[in-house]
Amino acid sequence: MKFSTLLAAGIALAVTATAAFADDISGAGATFPFPVYSKWADAYKKATGVGLNYQSIGSGAGIKQIQAKTVTFGATDIPQKAEDLAKFGLVQWPQVMGGIVPVVNLEGIAAGDLVLDGPTLANIYLGKVKTWDDAAITKLNPSAKLPALPIVVVRRSDGSGTTFNFTTYLSSVSPDFKAAVGAGQAVEWPVGVGAKGNDGVAANVMQTKGAIGYVEYAFAKQNAMVNTDMINSAGKRVKPKLESFAAAASNADWNSAPNFNLVIVNQPGDASWPMTNATFILMYSQPDDKAAAAAALAFFDWSFTNGAKMAEELDYIPMPVSVIAKIKSSAWTTIITK
């Protein structure tokens, strides 16, 4: 039979190909920071020749992958508690901050045409506000032409840090939402269609008339999606943009948060965007592969030093210098790379 020759050819092909490529840094997790990580990775590869294989599979899956040690670092938008970190011997730090925005697909509605407040957004995700011409929405948007279309709610089907921050925000502004759904990386949504990842939510909203979803701002901006404005906790209408994310982020008190365990949604301040959050990196303090851990830290160090501008271009907020210093002096010193 000819299978043996085929098999031999396949093996030969595989072996010759393996040798030609150097090892990349491997990481997996949150889809929220994927655009900025891949931009950094591209620039880093050009600068140093070292690549980063980042699988954006969701925060929940990222935590699982680092626990299973299939990757060098995990990425999550959900800050881990001290006891969970201790249990696995993990170290965590915030890498970059950004904003979550509601995105809609409505004919004749452009970005910034609509405004929503927290309770209305919560009621949409509770299935209480069912159509676009519902009084709750028209009251906030007297001048917008809203169709009598059913609202197609799009939310995550996977374990997600974006969902965690989004539901934390909705729970903080709506007691109903807190009671019926609550906050978590995966919740029992009363309505809606489930999509995988920030990208899946974005793709589904773009594909469905009358849809609403929530995604990291870079996903909305890169794909020219229609985002809404929000009424923040000060009662002011704010637009999602770098300045409003930064205004909210500036309130974050990282120094008094042990292990950087901090959720920064619904911050006070007239200019604060209500759904701002940080995204975190998880690594082992005693990694099996020390060289790989050192390579990963070198990449993060490089992106703290050289990546701020690139992050801002995608409307992520770089970590403040003081916080970076604290990350280097506290979290990173506990990782054994030699």
């Binding site: 059913p150 197609v152 309505v191 469905t208 008339k209 009358g210 849809a211």
Partner: peptide, 8 residues
């Protein structure tokens, strides 16, 4: 029911 019509 027309309440939820969508392409999914």
């Amino acid at each position: 029911s027309g309440e939820m019509v969508s392409n999914l």
